[in-house]
Amino acid sequence: MILRLIVFLSFNFGALALGSYFTGKGVSSDWYSDLLKAPWTPPGWMFGLAWTIIMVCFSIYLAYLWPSVKSKNVLIALFSLQWLLNVAWNPTFFYYHNVLLALILIVALTVLIGCILFLYWPETKVKFALILPYFIWLLIASSLNGYIFFNN
């Protein structure tokens, strides 16, 4: 269990590190600060805290899930797609300022995490609660991205 957890933590925090590399000044950039943002937009510091908690919970979820999955290839494919979508969002939004493509990416990621949640429900039972923070945060993030797209 510990080795699986370390592997998933490494991949997930690697994704966050890559994403933050492309974020640059991110929420403190002039471009982002000039956008009309949703009234429910959390303060900037909350994004880092939320993603840290989400990736710890998601890594624990995956470490528990791994031994009970019959088709490891399907889980690896879903995890890899999740990883790519997660990493791709930051440069798309913050570097290229392509709010529409970023919205498509984050909605796709939200749907994917929702599918993982329901697909592996029988294997995880109560532990599915560990993936809920990720799914809920993605719903919020999708709404924030959508608000920016439709109001700027």
Score class of each variant (00 low, 15 high):
residue 27 V to N: 01
residue 109 L to Y: 08
residue 10 S to V: 10
residue 68 S to N: 10
residue 120 Y to L: 10
residue 91 P to W: 14
residue 83 W to G: 11
residue 14 G to L: 08
residue 112 L to F: 10
residue 69 V to N: 04
residue 68 S to T: 12
residue 77 A to C: 11
residue 44 G to L: 03
residue 82 Q to Y: 15
residue 41 T to G: 01
residue 112 L to A: 10
residue 122 P to D: 13
residue 103 L to V: 06
residue 66 W to I: 04
residue 18 L to S: 01
residue 69 V to T: 03
residue 54 I to C: 03
residue 73 N to A: 06
residue 116 I to V: 15
residue 60 I to C: 03
residue 124 T to A: 13
residue 107 V to F: 09
residue 85 L to D: 13
residue 7 V to E: 04
residue 103 L to K: 04
residue 17 A to N: 02
residue 107 V to W: 08
residue 44 G to E: 07
residue 79 F to K: 06
residue 44 G to I: 04
residue 21 Y to R: 01
residue 61 Y to H: 07
residue 14 G to K: 06
residue 19 G to A: 01
residue 77 A to R: 11
residue 122 P to R: 12
residue 114 G to K: 09
residue 29 S to P: 00
residue 68 S to W: 04
residue 62 L to M: 12
residue 17 A to W: 02
residue 101 L to I: 10
residue 112 L to R: 10
residue 102 A to V: 09
residue 15 A to W: 03
residue 81 L to I: 15
residue 99 V to L: 11
residue 24 G to I: 01
residue 89 W to C: 06
residue 122 P to Y: 11
residue 74 V to M: 05
residue 20 S to F: 00
residue 29 S to I: 03
residue 39 P to D: 08
residue 26 G to P: 01
residue 98 N to A: 14
residue 30 D to M: 01
residue 43 P to Q: 03
residue 52 T to M: 08
residue 65 L to C: 05
residue 118 F to T: 15
residue 9 L to R: 03
residue 45 W to F: 13
residue 47 F to W: 11
residue 20 S to I: 01
residue 25 K to F: 00
residue 36 L to Y: 02
residue 99 V to N: 08
residue 59 S to A: 05
residue 30 D to Q: 03
residue 45 W to Y: 13
residue 87 V to N: 12
residue 101 L to R: 04
residue 15 A to T: 11
residue 73 N to H: 06
residue 26 G to C: 02
residue 27 V to S: 00
residue 88 A to S: 15
residue 13 F to S: 11
residue 22 F to P: 01
residue 55 M to R: 07
residue 83 W to L: 15
residue 97 H to N: 14
residue 78 L to I: 08
residue 24 G to P: 01
residue 93 F to D: 14
residue 19 G to H: 00
